[in-house]
Amino acid sequence: MKIIIGTKNPTKINACKAIFSEYEIEGASVASKVSAQPFSDEETRTGAINRAYGSAALNDNGLGIGLEGGIMFVDNKLYLCNWGALVTPGNDVYTASGARIVLPQEFIADLESGKELGTIMADFSKKENVSSKEGAVGIFTNDLIDRSEMFMHVVKLLRGQWEYSDKQKRKH
């Protein structure tokens, strides 16, 4: 079976390859149809679902996956958030969210002015392509967990839900 993931970002593609190693994985440019920098759980989840549907539409009889990173506020603190969605050939949709980590409050003004977290992180860390490498989570966890590993947890949750549901359908 082929799986198309709605991104060309290597951290997200590698997460899918790690969890679905026995499948053919292909990245595709698919629009999230949300802000370039999603600003809530809801918007981030919607972006993941839109990417999964767009990926599934490119895949005749396989799975479509969308992974989306965003930011959100909890008790006036800025957090990193991430969501994933998996769409089956029958249009069943599975969603999952992953790790969250507090981000520096000084990022808020730049984010509210329209800058994306990846750009802010590149300036902050003095590193290039942070969102295609360790991500904010890698920097702020001292590389104990990187962006690909963070998304691997989400992809595991998606795969587990899909396999469980498939197993239940075969029982009946």
Results as ranks from 00 to 15, higher is better:
residue 59 N to Q: 08
residue 59 N to R: 10
residue 59 N to S: 12
residue 59 N to L: 09
residue 59 N to W: 13
residue 61 N to L: 12
residue 61 N to W: 12
residue 63 L to A: 06
residue 64 G to W: 02
residue 65 I to D: 03
residue 65 I to V: 13
residue 65 I to M: 11
residue 67 L to W: 08
residue 68 E to N: 11
residue 68 E to A: 04
residue 68 E to R: 09
residue 74 V to R: 10
residue 75 D to A: 07
residue 76 N to R: 13
residue 76 N to A: 06
residue 76 N to Q: 12
residue 77 K to L: 13
residue 77 K to E: 14
residue 77 K to F: 11
residue 77 K to M: 12
residue 78 L to Y: 12
residue 78 L to W: 07
residue 80 L to I: 11
residue 80 L to S: 02
residue 80 L to G: 01
residue 85 A to V: 06
residue 85 A to C: 11
residue 87 V to A: 01
residue 89 P to S: 02
residue 90 G to N: 09
residue 91 N to V: 05
residue 92 D to N: 12
residue 92 D to E: 13
residue 93 V to A: 02
residue 93 V to W: 03
residue 94 Y to P: 07
residue 95 T to L: 07
residue 95 T to K: 14
residue 95 T to F: 11
residue 96 A to C: 06
residue 96 A to F: 04
residue 98 G to S: 12
residue 99 A to R: 06
residue 100 R to G: 05
residue 102 V to R: 00
residue 102 V to C: 10
residue 103 L to T: 08
residue 103 L to V: 08
residue 104 P to S: 01
residue 104 P to W: 00
residue 104 P to K: 00
residue 105 Q to M: 08
residue 106 E to M: 13
residue 106 E to Q: 14
residue 107 F to E: 00
residue 109 A to P: 05
residue 113 S to M: 10
residue 113 S to C: 10
residue 114 G to I: 00
residue 116 E to C: 09
residue 116 E to L: 09
residue 116 E to F: 09
residue 116 E to G: 10
residue 118 G to M: 13
residue 120 I to K: 01
residue 121 M to R: 03
residue 121 M to S: 08
residue 122 A to L: 13
residue 123 D to V: 14
residue 123 D to Y: 02
residue 124 F to M: 15
residue 124 F to C: 14
residue 124 F to K: 13
residue 124 F to N: 07
residue 126 K to A: 15
residue 126 K to Q: 15
residue 127 K to A: 14
residue 129 N to L: 05
residue 130 V to C: 01
residue 130 V to I: 10
residue 130 V to K: 00
residue 133 K to N: 14
residue 133 K to L: 12
residue 133 K to H: 14
residue 134 E to K: 07
residue 135 G to P: 11
residue 135 G to S: 08
residue 138 G to I: 12
residue 138 G to Y: 03
residue 138 G to C: 11
residue 140 F to E: 01
residue 140 F to G: 03
residue 140 F to K: 03
residue 140 F to S: 02
residue 140 F to W: 03
residue 140 F to M: 02
residue 141 T to P: 10
